[in-house]
Write a protein that binds this DNA or RNA. Structure first.
Lengths: 113, 113
DNA sequence: CACAATGCATTGGTTTCTTATGTATCTTTG
DNA sequence: CAAAGATACATAAGAAACCAATGCATTGTG
């Protein structure tokens, strides 16, 4: 089951920030693959969504970039800045609280870890 | 704390369908108040978002309506159709699964119920 | 050597929400 | 009893965020 894109809306920045907070620097394509893998193909980030998001986060000062060459092919690495690290934590916490609120609203059962 | 509207995006239809699946018929304003109350003011549905959503759900055949008068004031009640009941369950399940997936992706801890 | 995969990026369009506005009635309060 | 706030519907203009499609270029594979 692939989630309706409606649901994923609004969580993309959070997902990207979190992925970068774990494994140091990552490049765009790598992020899409990591997310695909971690979610068993249920969340697939399109490139048309990802790149504008990365550029926006960079513009906000949350990411720094580093362009390298693999042979003749360009690869652009992204890394969290200090404010990006802070923002990443904030976003994840906010999502966690949002989930708690939605549990009440939707009367969801909690699956034990 | 009021959630950034970004997070709520994509969940409005699910919220509305779920509220209607519990307390029989409800009118628009009542839904906004119920959600506000249940979430401790953390989710506030704007009317500009709600009414178009209700109309869309009605157009999809998920809701039926009933207009009554309280004195001279109009009140429009909404109720789930059979397909609406089915869709409501689907949407809530999908959200629950989405949350499970996001827990992995964001490495969230589960709060016991 | 064609085709899939890797890797960047942009454009046009749609959906969905916000902000603002409009209309009207009812209730509370100074 | 007038003003203000709450109730209750609705739409319109614009912004935000995403999708689908496309483009370019290189590298690996059958």
């Amino acid at each position: 089951m692939i989630f309706s894109s409606e649901l994923i809306k609004g969580t993309l920045k959070t997902i990207v920030l979190k992925q970068l907070s774990e494994g140091n620097k990552m490049y765009g394509y790598e992020i899409t693959q990591k997310v695909k893998e971690l979610t068993g193909d249920r969340i697939q980030i399109s490139e048309g969504a990802l790149y504008p998001t990365l550029h926006a986060l960079e513009k906000e000062g949350l990411l720094t970039t580093e362009t390298i060459y693999i042979g003749k092919r360009v690869r652009k690495y992204y890394r969290l800045s200090d404010s990006g690290k802070k923002k990443s934590k904030e976003r994840v916490s906010e999502f966690a609280e949002f989930v708690e609120t939605m549990k009440i609203l939707l009367d969801l059962q909690v699956k034990p870890a």
